[in-house]
């Protein structure tokens, strides 16, 4: 079982993860705005921008993150943003959003100028996570593990990052054993999804290029975190 320290770490991560959500006024637009490719693109980039702010707030609260060198903090955020956002989007699709909204969001993504070459693998990934029946604890811990990944580009003090990631991996491994006793491979399968997330990360720049319908601009925060000119 989890030790008392591990229990409190888990509750802290969960609480911090659940506190952050995209503001209602943005999710409400999902239902209201019309369905042009242009409107969908603008709405999805507004949601993504809010998503990044949510991600930064969650990251700032990760145990030990504030002790890291500032440049390494930025490098961790930039290196993990795409993967953490894919995880969060998968959770939104698989768990959080009321059923009707999921269809609307999917409809908007499919009609926003993004190429099917990227949309199909994205929804297949969401489905693959749904099949894993991930719990909220697993989503929050896995997101924290993704953010505190030491082998990101430009990280100077990898060792310090590794020391922050290790306890989270230990809690996640124990949690998988407790929550999925029927599936001893569950933890390994979760880690396997991290490899898939890396692939999305590698192809993200191309996806963005294909998504820029009528040379729309991304917001300054998205340009910075996604390294888009």
């Amino acid at each position: 079982d989890l030790t008392p320290e591990q229990q409190s770490l888990l509750h802290y991560i969960m609480d911090s993860y659940n506190r952050q959500c995209i503001p209602q006024y943005i999710t409400r637009k999902l239902l209201q705005e019309d369905f042009s490719a242009e409107e969908n693109f603008l709405l999805l980039t507004e949601m993504a921008t809010s998503h990044v702010q949510v991600l930064v707030e969650f990251t700032k609260k990760l145990p030990g993150f504030q002790t890291l060198d500032h440049e390494d903090q930025i490098a961790l955020l930039k290196g993990s943003a795409v993967e953490a956002m894919f995880l969060r989007s998968a959770e939104i699709f698989n768990r959080k959003m009321p059923h009707g909204h999921t269809d609307l969001l999917e409809e908007r993504i499919r009609n926003s100028g993004m190429s099917d070459d990227y949309i199909t693998p994205m929804f297949n990934f969401y489905k693959s996570l749904e099949e894993l029946k991930m719990t909220q604890e697993e989503y929050s811990l896995l997101t924290a593990v993704v953010i505190l990944t030491p082998d990101r580009q430009y990280i100077k003090d990898k060792e310090s990052v590794e020391k922050l990631q290790e306890p989270l991996l230990e809690v996640l491994q124990k949690l998988c054993q407790v929550q999925h006793p029927e599936n001893p491979q569950h933890f390994a399968r979760l880690l396997g999804r991290l490899t898939e997330l890396r692939t999305f990360n590698h192809h993200h720049a191309e996806m963005l290029m294909s998504w820029r319908v009528n040379d729309h601009k991304f917001t300054p925060l998205l340009c910075e975190i996604w390294d888009v000119q």
């Binding site: 930064v56 707030e57 955020l77 925060l221 910075e224």
Partner: peptide, 16 residues
Amino acid sequence: DELSLLKKLLLSPANV
């Protein structure tokens, strides 16, 4: 160079 947006967000107090 002026503080990047990310740096500003990181340095701002944690908001709920």
